[in-house]
Amino acid sequence: MVEPPRPRRRFRQRSVIPGFGLTLGYTLTCLGVIVLLPLAALVAKAAGLGPAGIWAVATDPRVASALRVSFGVSLLAALTASIFGGIVAWVLTRYEFPGRKLADAVVDLPFALPTAVAGIALASLYAPNGPLGAQLLKVGIEAAYTPVGIFIAMVFIGLPFAVRTVQPLIAEIDKEVEEASAILGASRVATLTKVVLPPLIPAVLTGFALAFARGVGEYGSIIFIAGNLPYVSEIAPLLIVIKLSEFDYEGASAIAVIMLGISFLTLLAINLVQAWSRRRFGYV
């Protein structure tokens, strides 16, 4: 798509298309009322503690450990989802096999399936007396009620992000470039690593970041399958719920703001990567 040069001095570029004021105004109003005002209230509540207070919450060993669990396990889960999601996207786009359409449709399941439903289903599958949990126990892996359970739930909810961001790009890869590379004597492996994969990297990163951000905040599916033990398998959103049950609104808000800050930076990074890759590769 041809993008006109960015105006530097004017707020927006002139256009014959009407409705800019109306639609942008409406967008900003909704955004303000639904998203920004409540989030500002959250920040204001946390600010009641003062910077030192927020720092004290963040460095409280239990909070720090919950943040470590949430961010650490989510990182691993997003990594797993990205690797396998990449394979799934590749297979679904490039190969013909029976049941491909079905497999393609199934990928969106975690988008549509309520998290609580996913949580109880995963818990009954991976509990020590569940069909998968019993098998895993035989090889010495305790899945449910450990960080492994958190990992499983996070992979579940992150997978569609990893697949769906990469898939359209794989579909758009110009086969002629691959053919050229092959005809020029490159091995298939060399073609893949030098020609096919590099343009996919921004999309893979985007999918990874989305899966990561989603995993960090996830609550519904995880509480059913995590052990919720302080310092072991307690996630940050659960700690927010616990703080609320203790009527500690400031503490809950402070944890929320810390999570929010990290998520916002992650998302901003995604959009920058996308803007960059659109300039660099012309799509996404």
Partner: peptide
Amino acid sequence: LIDLPFSVSPVV
């Protein structure tokens, strides 16, 4: 900013 709710924990 429009994307923000995507990555806000449901609890938050």
